[in-house]
Design a protein around this nucleic acid. Structure first.
Lengths: 264, 264
DNA sequence: CGATTCCTTGAGGCATCTCAAGGCAAGTGG
DNA sequence: CCACTTGCCTTGAGATGCCTCAAGGAATCG
């Protein structure tokens, strides 16, 4: 809760290592090297919007690639910030754990999405990221990336824009948490997942949720029982078919109306 | 709600004007020019952490200065993004208004704090900012700032860190909205204000709130009546003395405990 | 001085939480 | 292969914290 209860005290300038080693404690498997220019995610991920020249420069960074097993953390709150991570495959949750053990999920990340940008503020990760299924990520050394950014205005803009997008995303979540009821929250969540699946070439109407009811509840600010009841309610309204984690959207418009009821 | 209901669709690269005019519709008074190097807020604001050389470079941008009357918007959702704004004096609220008229306040900004970073994502402001009292701001032309950033690694880092700090701040707010009860929310809010007042040289124990009960409620995800009742409850517990917008903290530790009850 | 805005307080209602029980599927060990 | 455990989900019943609606007071302003 530091940003809530703490002043906006300016932190000392963060100094990055000139050459952080790619292999940290969390990355036991020998890191494969990866290139953005040949990556099938390049239109969703970091290089999106960059010219061929800049993408080629990103290739020069030779991102480390790392597998993360289901349930394993990629990084934890308090870990030193060195990398930004891009999801190659699998799904992650990120969030904070309170000392009393309760968890607040602040986001779910899918292929092509970035994690770890919160670490820049204080040189330390403010959240943890955990794989919800066996996953693979690119570890992008921030020091190298920002060094590269000094040579490319476009890359600078892309990075800034990605950070800004995270801010906008969180605004929306605050709106959800601050002023929507249970049905609206779950509808918003499902529509969001649906669109992200679609953007990745999967069906927008039928998908497998990777997170538990408790994780959805934490993300949406409600208890797991309420999540479950709301799923059942949607099913009764013939908006969805739900079987555990498998979801089929029957009435996208209806779901959109449930979401827009208040939000418009 | 776009980021909730929308895919993380990469936006087209945003092109900034080479020379956006400083005088927009909202800035009628002749813009005074301001220098960071002589500003009394320089340790709280953008230049914090920068060397003398870099601060001198910021001076070269000659930020426009602008007065904003109480109740007036500085920018609105949907406005084209050109400036980042730094509060010189006064207090702002920022937030989004839904088409049904409901407002979600996403933050309050005091002297030295920045506004408008959400505009970068899509080249358009995602939130509105409104003065809660007569105020004065610096309008920092983003195109110039980012141009300047190409010449200074430190400045780049400072900007990135400020954006990251906004992300971290919002994580905390999500935690608050997602898993705290009314008393914890208000305690967290008051402690946060208290610390920010202190950082600005004001009393940490006695201050004047610039926002209404409804605005506090919107920010904290509760109704204004509940805010009012919670204030009364704190007063009965001898944690506070409240008279409308004037607050005196009687028992900082007690208030901290009310906040840490769950958060620790 | 009336109109307006903002705050406080009360009473009752309701959405969500809490507590509890049971079902289902996958994993484990005998 | 079966008994048992474990984790996750669903559903019910009752409790409760916050909301809704309503009234009245205090301060501000034209």
């Amino acid at each position: 809760m530091s940003a809530i209860a703490s002043p906006v005290r300016p932190a000392a300038p963060v100094r990055f290592l000139a050459r952080p080693e790619l292999a940290t404690a969390a990355s036991k498997p020998a890191p494969l090297k990866t290139q953005c220019s040949t990556c099938h995610l390049k239109d969703l991920c970091l290089p999106c919007g960059l010219t061929g020249t800049d993408v080629a420069r990103l290739d020069g960074l030779m991102f480390g690639r790392r597998r993360v097993k289901e349930g394993q953390p990629l990084y934890r709150e308090g870990d030193k910030f060195q990398f930004i991570y891009a999801v190659r495959s699998g799904t992650f949750k990120s969030g904070m754990t309170l000392k009393d053990g309760r968890e607040q999920v602040t986001g779910f990340q899918m292929a092509g999405e970035l994690m770890g940008l919160d670490g820049l503020a204080n040189g330390v990760h403010a959240t943890s990221a955990t794989a919800l299924e066996d996953a693979e990520i690119c570890a992008i050394p921030y020091a190298h990336l920002s060094e590269l950014a000094t040579t490319s205005t476009d890359l600078q803009h892309v990075i800034s824009r990605l950070m800004s997008r995270e801010i906008v995303r969180e605004h929306s979540l605050m709106m959800l948490l601050g002023s929507m009821n249970a049905e609206e929250r779950l509808a918003a969540f499902l529509l969001n997942i649906s669109q992200r699946m679609k953007a990745r070439g999967y069906s927008a109407n039928e998908f497998h949720l990777r997170m538990s009811r408790a994780e959805i509840g934490s993300y949406l600010g409600m208890k797991l029982e309420t999540v479950s009841r709301t799923f059942s309610a949607f099913q009764q309204q013939r908006l969805l078919e739900v079987d555990k984690k498998h979801v089929r959207i029957l009435d996208l418009d209806g779901l959109t109306r449930a979401f827009e009821a208040r939000v418009q």
